[in-house]
């Protein structure tokens, strides 16, 4: 699989289509994000599969935003799984990346990873290597997780989340790892909403403020879950807000390249899409 990825990258360099390729590399015994430049061997390149598939994923899109801000004229190649490509589509929509300046080199995720992630689309459109696994089972698993939560009555659900939020150490890791968080000023640092330097965290304001901001952004990549030192099921929370966006507006962040968010449109609400 990696040979096909390398071949594609070498061709992109040869055709002078990209200034650099953002991917992953084995380095000092660890997996690290790396910007491969032209003429540099692709030695050590990896796809982020260590013990199991996809266990060393990094927010490459976030790094790409940093690079694009510094070098807006350059075109970059980037390694993209299904979730990464959804993130790219979201960042195109939110004007953080220029679609003409990004070339995704896509890899498909295996079935077990797709299922564990409850992935909505475990392969990118820009597929270069790997086999497309249809998302039926993993989408169903996601719906079942949400349905199980919805069987709890409101009081129980609220106390479940209150308990989860009370574990928060306010590291801001969920925001800092998030490829869809790019604001220069963050509401979570606004002292009218969130007290500064205090623990416990403001419950539920801190997490629900973030969940609201994620409503039309979150592409369900799960990096926040993996970065949380307190094991708060953040992904489940954002999955619920995404479900509301889907039911109310027929909108799923990152699924269509030319999508528009109902939260940034003026005028009457778009028609509900029958499911």
């Amino acid at each position: 699989m990696i040979d096909m990825v390398k071949e594609k990258i070498e061709a992109l360099f040869k055709e002078k289509k990209i200034a650099g390729f953002l991917g992953l590399r084995e380095q000092n015994g660890q997996v690290a994000p790396h910007l491969f430049m032209e003429g540099q061997a692709l030695e050590g390149m990896c796809l982020g599969d260590r013990k199991i598939a996809g266990d060393a994923r990094y927010p490459l899109n976030k790094i790409l935003v940093t690079l694009a801000r510094q070098y807006p004229e350059e075109t970059f190649g980037i390694l993209a799984r299904g979730c990464d490509e959804r993130g790219l589509y979201g960042l195109f929509r939110l004007n953080q990346l220029d679609p003409d300046k990004v070339i995704a080199v896509g890899i498909a995720c295996p079935g077990d990873l797709a299922l564990a992630c409850e992935c909505k689309k475990p392969f990118p459109e820009a597929l270069v290597a790997g086999e497309k696994i249809q998302a039926g089972d993993s989408i169903k698993a996601g719906r079942e997780t949400l349905a199980a939560m919805d069987t709890l009555d409101l009081d129980k659900r609220f106390s479940f989340w209150k308990n989860q939020f009370s574990k928060c150490v306010k590291c801001y890791g969920c925001r800092d790892i998030c490829p869809m968080c790019f604001c220069r000023e963050c509401s979570l640092e606004c002292e009218d909403l969130v007290s500064k330097g205090d623990l416990p965290v403001d419950i539920p304001v801190f997490h629900l403020t973030r969940a609201m901001h994620m409503a039309d952004r979150c592409v369900d990549c799960g990096l926040c879950d993996e970065a949380c030192p307190a094991d708060i099921p953040l992904r489940l929370l954002y999955k619920k807000t995404a479900q509301i966006m889907d039911i109310e507006f027929g909108f799923t962040s990152g699924i269509n390249k030319d999508e528009r968010s109902p939260l940034s449109m003026m005028g009457p609400a778009p028609k509900k899409v029958a499911k």
Binding site: G29, Q30, V31, R50, D55, A56, R57, Y58, V169, K170, C171, Y172, G173, E226, A227, C228, P229
Partner: peptide, 12 residues
């Protein structure tokens, strides 16, 4: 992510 010490997590 691959460090056995912090497994992709950090404090503030």
């Amino acid at each position: 992510k691959t460090s056995p010490v912090n497994e992709g997590k950090l404090c503030i």
